[in-house]
Design a protein around this nucleic acid. Structure first.
Lengths: 142, 142
DNA sequence: GTATATGCAAAGCATTTGCATTAAA
DNA sequence: TTTAATGCAAATGCTTTGCATATAC
């Protein structure tokens, strides 16, 4: 899907790579589900039990500041982190019951333009579509 | 724009109307900006200084549960509340600098369908488009 | 009159920060 | 060796809750 790994991209930016940061980067990758800081922490601990939650937050915030991942907060509850930003253009599929968030390939969705008359003086540089619905798990549970 | 007021709709649902709740409902109406609980509290206090923040939260949560307003959390920081949900179909214009959120009429944006093949087993019942950019105020400040 | 909303203050999460210690480069 | 990252624990900010009192219906 993507040619380079998150870790490689970060290293290229001159990022200092520690075992903790490696564990965080690896925890985020691969999945098309977006994890909370706490879930990242749990996963990172499976590899490096000494990773602290504070370090997870610090690391995630840096990655966001670099634009390598995005913080998304569509449902109540804690923030989630999207590692596929800027590399694979995509939109989101949100379960309104459990808050789970999946990616959708951008090619599945038409490009959108907002007419200048409706821009309220904004400049627009990204468009993001969220499909709200119910995920298979919650459908089964209902 | 809408034929009935938020307060009228709530009363029709058999809601018990108190001065505090009236103040919260009025604070939310009319605007195309989405307020935080704290901002709603400040506005409600201008009319009824004894309204407590706890009551504002309780009231907003009830309105959300009834589907009369929506909680939106696109940017870091506190939740914001969208009173125009379900009545005036619309999308969002988000300032990535200051987090301000405006409404855009749905007619300005084409309807979108997600192909079944890309639905990952979800049912989809709403589509929401967010245009990310920079608002006039932040442009001026830059 | 009765059920329900209120304010207050305390509790509960999510997230950030200060600081002494440790480790990457 | 230098500069920056770590863990811990305390602090902060947003939101919810418990409970005694007040009030809409």
């Amino acid at each position: 899907m993507s040619e380079t790994t998150l870790l490689e991209r970060l290293r290229e930016r001159g990022w200092r790579v520690t075992p903790q940061r490696r564990a965080v980067a690896v925890a985020l990758e691969g999945d098309h589900v977006h994890l909370t800081a706490d879930e990242v922490h749990r996963r990172a601990r499976e590899v490096r039990p000494e990773v602290s939650l504070a370090t997870v937050y610090n690391t995630l915030n840096e990655m966001v500041a670099m634009g390598e991942i995005a913080e998304v907060r569509y449902a109540p509850g804690p923030s989630r982190y999207d590692p596929n930003v800027g590399h694979t253009p995509h939109h989101h599929l949100l379960c309104k019951v459990c808050g789970a968030l999946f990616d959708v390939d951008a090619h599945a969705v038409a490009d959108l333009q907002l007419p200048v008359a409706d821009r309220h003086g904004f400049t627009v540089d990204a468009v993001e579509v969220t499909f709200r619905g119910t995920c298979p798990d919650c459908l089964a549970a209902a």
